[in-house]
């Protein structure tokens, strides 16, 4: 939970990630400022291509080529990750901040047994740990995940999707990192497996005293787990608030649109709304609110100036509608 006495464990400041391509520069992430506090679960939501995955990868400085940092910094406990030398960076990845990915089916090396994955994950950070100890630790963590120790000898192709995703988590947590970045962790799983997986993630969050950054387009999952939600649109952060605030009173028209897209049994909504229009073109420097073309409440100013992210009593949004206050 955000707390003024609590220093952020991860502090993203004015981050821009750009992709130079033949027809111009794509601004995949633009001017994002976001603090993540110890122990919280922060959900990052938005439609595909909004920059949420790029933001997640940039926390480990793993942007897909040819992406690079345009400006800004990412402070982990006060040190800028983007300015780290290679050794420090490698050591930080996996040990302090770990990440799990969307597709568990392809996230394990098909030619390596589960055991070798664990041994590698430990030994690249602690070269002096012997193989028996690595296996011992792997068994312990697998027990927490509800997987029998004899699975260690198996190869990825012998395991189910849910099993592989749990092993991915085990690999991420084996070194007890502070932060877990989860990029669409349930998208590739079927509904039943997803439910079990979400429970597991909630349990691990407490068990391992984790800070979790949950990147997803699945609002249901985020609502279930997150303390705060950051909404991204067109590479920008457009709204940041607690889960309750977002679900009770979304401020940004885009967030409002997102809420309308969620089927909600309890509220007996009459029809399910799809948002009109398509995601914005991110090539070039924007001169207007990127959501303006799709926005039902767009005004003249929206088409000529980019709205800044402003604070409204503990929650933030970037929209000209609230110039005079919420």
């Amino acid at each position: 939970m955000p707390d003024s006495a609590n220093e952020p464990i991860l502090d993203i400041r004015d981050l821009s990630i750009i992709y130079p391509i033949s027809i111009g520069t794509v601004h995949a992430v633009q001017d994002v400022t976001l603090s993540i506090y110890k122990g919280e679960v922060l959900g990052i939501v938005g439609e595909s291509g909004c920059g949420k995955s790029t933001l997640g990868l940039s926390i480990l400085k793993l942007m897909k080529p040819p992406g690079r940092i345009g400006s800004g910094s990412i402070l982990y406990k006060g040190t800028d990750i983007l300015g780290m030398d290679d050794r420090t960076l490698l050591d930080m990845r996996g040990r302090n901040i770990a990440m799990i990915f969307q597709n568990p089916l392809t996230s394990l090396d098909p030619l390596m047994s589960v055991e070798r994955h664990f041994i590698e994950a430990i030994q690249v950070h602690e070269p002096r740990t012997g193989v028996p100890e690595c296996i011992e630790r792997a068994k312990k963590i697998l027990a927490d995940l509800g997987i029998e120790g004899n699975r260690l000898k198996e190869y990825p192709y012998q395991l189910s999707g849910g099993m592989r995703q749990r092993i991915m988590i085990g690999l991420a947590l084996i070194l007890h990192p502070d932060i877990l970045l989860a990029d669409e962790p349930t998208t590739a799983l079927d509904v039943i497996v997803e439910a079990g997986f979400t429970e597991l993630l909630i349990r691990l969050h407490e068990l391992y005293n984790l800070t979790v950054v949950l990147i997803s387009h699945n609002l249901g999952l985020v609502a279930q787990m997150a303390d705060r939600i950051a909404v991204m649109y067109g590479g920008r952060l457009v709204e940041l608030a607690t889960v309750n605030q977002i679900f009770e009173k979304p401020l940004h028209p885009y967030t409002q649109g997102l809420m309308n897209c969620v089927p909600n049994i309890l509220l007996e909504q009459k029809e399910l709304n799809a948002m009109p229009g398509s995601p914005p073109d991110l090539v070039g420097e924007p001169t207007a609110c990127p959501f303006a073309p799709r926005c039902p409440k767009a005004m003249d100013i929206c088409r000529s100036r980019v709205p800044p992210l402003k604070d409204y009593g503990g929650r933030r949004t970037a929209c000209w509608l609230y110039e005079g206050g919420v």
Partner: peptide, 26 residues
Amino acid sequence: KSDYVLASRARGVPERRVVYKHALKN
């Protein structure tokens, strides 16, 4: 481009090892 290469990078595996141990072998 595969996910397991990205995943092993995220685990802090050094680039040389990623390329020769994981990628080249596959």
